[in-house]
Design a protein around this nucleic acid. Structure first.
Lengths: 224, 224
DNA sequence: TGAGTTGTAAACAATTCGTGAAATTTGGCG
DNA sequence: CGCCAAATTTCACGAATTGTTTACAACTCA
């Protein structure tokens, strides 16, 4: 679950935002002043930070600056009151990602939060790789030297399983159970056939397999 | 000229606000009950909505809820009488952007209206695009080579979901859950049918899909 | 009520999968 | 070292799965 740090001295607003976040499936950390907020920002590594511009003590600007100075790139949204002179350029310069003017609709705030989180997420893309091949598990995309290689469903599933179990000695039965599932009972030759296809598509020299290795009398092993 | 929808059962107040708005260069649409107001809100796409909290029939809260439920983000100000139990949290939760307590000075109301309009205008430009297609998510408008393409509700929702999840391998189940919601259980073929419609309307060559790509045995992928 | 929208069924098209059989390789053993 | 049985690789094909398209009836909203 994604954690969102809310730093605002207005008790009422803070609670409102907290409730809204909970309702939407986030875990809020509510904090009333800049100093504590800064500690949480650095300590709890939230997924996103909401910080009020105007606060006694450490202001939002100051919190933002220090968070960035510490090398933390967590997405950060500044909340500003309607009367505040909001200088967009300044906010961008100190490293804020967005700002919202009070009073705001929860819907709007949520949209901004989601937009930022979405923008931030792609780094979390789990791509596994070996030699000149890159595999993005979630997107189901395989690239070789940057070019996309088309994979059928069974091929991709098998490939993913190998990547997630490198170096292990995998019998055909284990592979069948894990990749094909308990309910289908294809011939164990099926595994061989698909291994062949993986080699043809992904091995530097499919006659001398270096990654999808045969264990004679046992099964296969994937080596990165 | 900017249109402002006023929903209030108090004839006197409604006319007063109407006059004031006209004098200030807005075009008021005056409506006496929630039901008619809701129709206007969804049909006339005003720039801003003023709605009375207490009304016989559809209350202001109800109107606001339904407007938001329909995906319309028009700025909305709730007018409440001095005795009303105004629950800030509730108002924020249902998607109101601001509220004003009666009796109020026209000057104050105008300031709130202007503030909201100022805030709403620049963000209205969030458009996503691919090839010769531009999609304004908030306004639910799709243009192709500058010409508007009519989209039905389901079509647009699906399109928006694709645009917001580019490159991901999306199974029909994920699509159904995200676009149709947990509560309706249409056939997964439904997704196919709508993808067909999107391709016909938006693909350069609907026989060779380049953007709404089939992942055989998996689902679909949107590529910008 | 009527136009527009939506979900579904059914017929058809495309892709994928598993299989068997032949060719090849492997590794133990005499 | 060479032979042989067992194991693996390869390949092409038909069955089966999966996707597309169209038409249509139910539904919705004005």
């Amino acid at each position: 679950m994604q954690t969102i740090l809310v730093i605002d001295d207005d008790d009422n607003l803070r609670d409102t935002i907290g409730l809204m976040l909970e309702k939407e499936g986030f875990r809020p950390i509510l904090v009333a002043d800049g100093k504590t907020g800064l500690q949480e920002a650095l300590g709890s590594s939230p997924s996103l930070i909401l910080v009020d511009l105007r606060m006694p003590g450490l202001s939002g600007v100051e919190v933002c600056k220090r968070v960035r100075a510490a090398g933390v790139r967590t997405p950060l949204i500044v909340l500003s009151a309607v009367g505040d002179e909001v200088d967009k350029v300044l906010l961008l310069e100190i490293g804020a990602d967005d700002y919202v003017v009070k009073p705001f609709g929860t819907r709007e705030l949520l949209a901004r939060i989601r937009a930022l989180l979405r923008r931030a997420t792609p780094e979390a893309n789990e791509t596994l790789s070996f030699s000149d091949v890159e595999v993005d598990i979630e997107r189901r995309i395989v690239r070789r030297k940057g070019d996309e290689v088309k994979m059928t469903r069974a091929e991709f599933n098998l490939l993913a399983f190998f990547l997630q179990n490198p170096d292990r000695a995998l019998t055909r039965d284990v592979i069948l159970n894990s990749v094909w599932g308990y309910e289908s009972f294809p011939n164990t030759r099926t595994v061989d056939a698909h291994v062949v296809r993986l080699r043809q598509k992904l091995e530097p020299d499919s006659n001398v397999p270096r990654h999808f290795v045969t264990l004679h009398g046992v099964g296969y092993r994937f080596i990165a």
